[in-house]
Structure formats: structure tokens, C-alpha cells
């Protein structure tokens, strides 16, 4: 991983972070493939990148169960770069969701039916609906590693890929998928719900609209709001009752109330414009109050700008600038009084909650020292981004 710090004429640095450990000696899959993990990947060997004589069924397929996510990923790429005829049958027989995902990516239209059938059946037979509610902190541990490959999310992604890459499912296939997925929705896990909503909208499930609106009612998480309001748009008019439309418009009102950046606000405007355009004249007058965008209200009203000039400050007035031990409460008040909060968001400053015109200053201290900050205020155009 590479990253930079600094910028805009302040001191800059470029860092590289790399793993300094030793490769696992037991990882014989790499040896079988004729390369080592340490040289950056089993798939590369001397001058022939993909043309290694490897039996995909013997090497790649079993290692899709490997506990290392990175290895699983490489194994899937290995499968995808082998002729599908060599491993198609074994992949279907294995029912491994990563293998099915690989087949969905490189297979043919005739593979779609078998892939979707296996996924629907394994989802129906699995105990995915009964997953315990995970505790947030342990969730990554719980889902990472080998377990994650077996989770519902991988299967849902494989379904999506099969539909995207191998052509639109037949009506019978759609019905089969709806029957497998509808009982799981709503789920305990948020990201599973997001994927289920997407797929069920695609499958035009009768259940998806009401359930999603219920999920929204119970959620204060902006990730839910941006996701669900976006995907429900794809449902045609005959899926919506007047009550549903009312709930969606109420939802847009709540969407507007989240403190977000400029793209959040623009997304809200676009969703609203598109939704209102689909309303009948009768509904437009019925919902007249909900249709205009809600005016954002900052937590604390913006202060009036100072009218008296104290001094036209220059850099020289603040030579040897030392701001250690300054009063942060008064600094926050000055941030509001000096009108900074009107355009620049700073986390924790309520008056700046709706500011999105200028750059976010929340973590400015990580990149700029006190003199740089003062110079940028006094000479805003000296360095142009």
C-alpha cells in the first residue's frame, strides 16, 4: 500500500507499507502451482504468465476453501483463466460459491440455469435466516477468513454476477430465486439486506417495497437511506400504492435531514425530482406539502458577520506563532463568528453541519501546521489547489 501526506506546498512524504513476515511453509498449494507466494503470486512463473500446466480441478478448486482471503481470490482468478470446459462440471458439483462466481464470470449463457439452481437450493437449505445478530466489534473477525466465503453474501454476489454476465434469467428462474430469497428479507445483517433489496428489486418481488420501507422506518443509518431510496426507484408504477408513495416522500424528507456533503444534497434533489415526475396530478396535490425540498437547518444558527474591523491582520502580526494551550471553546466560537462554519464543515461543530461549499476542515491539523493554516486564511489564493 502506498500513501502520501502533506501537499499544497507543505512538507510532503510518500510512504510504502509492506508485509515483512515470512510465507507460510505449509502452503503447499503455491508449490504445486510452481511459484511462491513471496514473489507476488502463484500465477506468475518465469515468462509465461498464465500458461502453466496446472490442473484447475486439482489445484484451484480445493483451495477456494483456503482460510486466506487473498489465496481464495487468486484461486478464483486461476480458475477464470483456465478453460471453463476443464472445470465447469467440478465447479458445479462442488457447489462452492466462489467457484460458481468464477463460472458466472467466464461461463456461457447455458451455465446460468445450473448456477442459479444450485445457489437457490443451497440458500434454501442453509440456515442463513437464523444467523445470530452479530456484535459489531466481532463482526469482521466473524466474517473474515474462510467463513466469509461461505456466507450468504458470496452467494448473493454470485447470483448477481450470473444475472449480469450470463443474460437475464427466465421467468421460471426468477420465480425460483424469489422463493429462495424472499423468506430471508429482512435479515439481521445490514449488508445482506442491502444486497437482498437490490436483487429482489431486480426480480420484481412483490414483497420488496413494503419490507424495505419498513426497514427504513426503523433505521437512522444514512447508509440505509442512500441505498434503499436509490434502488426502490427501479420499481415500476404498478408496484406502488398511494400509501407507499407517501412513505417514500416522508423518507426523502428524512434523507434531507442527514448532515451530508454536496453529493448527498444533490442525490436528494435528483431522487426527489425523479420521484415527483412520476406522481399523478391527483397525487401531486395530495402530497403538496411533502414535495418541496426541506430546508436544511443548522444545529446552531449562523452568527452575524462581524461589522467592526479590528485590524487588517498580516502574517507579520503573528510572527513566532505559538498556539499551544489556546482556548479551544473560544476558538470554536471564533470559527462561527468569522463565518468559517458557513462554508467549511468541521466534525463536532454543530454550526457547520450543513456547510459543504468549501473543503472539510475536520482533519486539517494532520496536514497543516498553525502558520500554514493562518497563511491560507490571510492569503487564500496564494496556493491554488
Amino acid at each position: 500500500m502506498w500513501f502520501t501526506t502533506g501537499g499544497r506546498r507543505t512538507q510532503s512524504a510518500l510512504y510504502r507499507v509492506r508485509w515483512a513476515g515470512k510465507p507460510d511453509e505449509n502452503a503447499d498449494f503455491a508449490e504445486k502451482a510452481g511459484a511462491s507466494v513471496a514473489d507476488g503470486g502463484f500465477v506468475r512463473k518465469s515468462d509465461s504468465k498464465w500458461e502453466i500446466k496446472i490442473d484447475p480441478v486439482e489445484v484451484y478448486l480445493p483451495n477456494l476453501e483456503n482460510e486466506d482471503r487473498d489465496v481464495r481470490f487468486r484461486m478464483r482468478l486461476g480458475l477464470e483463466n483456465s478453460p471453463p470446459d476443464q472445470w465447469r462440471d467440478a465447479a458445479l458439483k462442488s457447489q462452492n460459491p466462489w467457484a460458481l462466481m468464477a463460472l458466472a464470470r467466464v461461463g456461457e449463457e447455458s451455465d446460468r440455469g445450473p448456477i442459479l439452481k444450485i445457489l437457490a437450493e443451497t440458500i434454501e437449505q442453509g440456515s442463513f435466516a437464523e444467523q445470530p445478530k452479530p456484535n459489531r466489534q466481532s463482526r469482521l473477525d466473524e466474517l473474515d477468513g474462510a467463513q466469509r466465503s461461505q456466507t450468504l453474501l458470496t452467494r448473493l454476489r454470485a447470483i448477481q454476477l450470473a444475472c449480469i454476465r450470463l443474460g437475464e434469467p427466465t421467468d421460471a428462474e426468477k420465480k425460483m430465486l424469489r422463493e429462495a430469497l424472499e423468506p430471508l428479507f429482512p435479515h439481521d445483517l445490514q449488508d445482506v439486506n442491502h444486497e437482498l433489496c437490490e436483487i429482489l428489486v431486480y426480480l420484481r418481488s412483490d414483497k420488496v417495497l413494503g419490507t424495505t420501507l419498513d426497514l427504513l422506518d426503523a433505521s437512522d443509518d444514512s447508509r440505509d437511506w442512500s441505498h434503499y431510496l436509490m434502488f426502490l426507484r427501479y420499481l415500476e408504477d404498478d408496484f406502488w400504492t398511494t400509501d407507499d408513495r407517501h412513505r417514500y416522500l416522508e423518507g426523502l424528507k428524512k434523507f434531507d435531514s442527514f448532515a451530508g456533503g454536496r453529493w448527498w444534497i444533490r442525490a436528494g434533489e435528483s431522487l426527489r425530482k425523479e420521484f415527483v415526475a412520476r406522481l399523478s396530478e391527483e397525487e401531486k396535490s395530495k402530497f403538496a406539502e411533502l414535495i418541496p425540498p426541506q430546508q436544511p437547518k443548522p444545529d446552531t444558527p449562523p452568527a452575524a458577520p462581524p461589522t467592526e474591523i479590528v485590524k487588517a491582520w498580516t502574517m507579520e502580526d503573528f510572527a513566532n506563532l505559538d498556539v499551544s494551550g489556546r482556548d479551544l471553546k473560544r476558538g470554536e466560537a471564533a470559527y462561527v463568528k468569522g463565518q468559517c462554519a458557513v462554508c467549511h464543515k468541521k466534525a463536532g461543530n454543530g454550526a457547520s453541519a450543513r456547510a459543504f461549499l468549501g473543503p472539510d476542515l475536520t482533519s486539517i491539523a494532520n496536514r497543516f501546521g498553525p502558520s500554514d493554516i493562518l497563511e491560507s486564511i490571510l492569503h487564500p489564493s496564494r496556493v491554488i489547489a
Partner: peptide
């Protein structure tokens, strides 16, 4: 070119400017 009006800071007392920079640099 920045649209920020530097003049707004002219309405702040010296101490307030220092507190503001201290707040931003914290």
C-alpha cells in the same frame, strides 16, 4: 482561485485569531 474572503478574519480580536488557529490546529 479561492473564493474565501480573508477580510472576515479582520473582524476578530488578536486573541480570537490565535484561538481560532489553535482550534483548527488541535
Amino acid at each position: 482561485i479561492s473564493t474565501m474572503p480573508p477580510g472576515l478574519i479582520y473582524g476578530l480580536e488578536r486573541d480570537e485569531v490565535l484561538d481560532l488557529i489553535g482550534y483548527l490546529a488541535a
